[in-house]
């Protein structure tokens, strides 16, 4: 699936009545997972020409590389922050509480903008 398809999938999961599940919170987390994957794959595409193997490098390494290879440092930082936000919504680490539809909708919209700028 392309990043765009993944992002559309994420937005679809948040559409009212689109998904029949007794656990709406799990579906919300699934939307966060898909949005994060869309971001990860876009970044991987940006880094491959520079010889970086995304399957081997950790994400913190990937974002450092992104900042090093992009002229638009602010966009690189925004992508890193967005990934961290989406990650936190997918985790049940105790410190994090369930996301809300509003949180996720805003994050997916941010992801859409970042993906467009990353090109």
């Amino acid at each position: 699936m392309t990043p765009e398809e993944l992002l559309r999938g994420a937005a679809h999961l948040l559409e009212k009545g689109a998904i029949a599940s007794p656990e709406p919170t799990s579906i919300q987390r699934a939307a966060a997972v898909l949005a994060r994957q869309a971001l990860e794959e876009t970044i991987a595409e940006r880094l491959r020409p520079h010889g970086l193997d995304p399957s081997e490098a950790s994400f913190s390494a990937q974002f450092l590389c992104l900042q090093g290879t992009m002229a638009n440092k602010a966009l690189a930082r925004e992508a890193a922050a967005l990934w961290a936000s989406l990650s936190s919504l997918t985790h049940h680490s105790g410190q994090e509480l369930s996301p809300t539809d509003k949180d996720l909708t805003a994050l997916i919209e941010r992801t859409r903008r970042v993906l467009a700028e990353l090109g």
Partner: peptide, 19 residues
Amino acid sequence: DADSVALAKGMGDELPYRV
């Protein structure tokens, strides 16, 4: 979460495998 996504209706064919 994994169970919920696997059982949810309306997810399509590919999305559950990504999640």
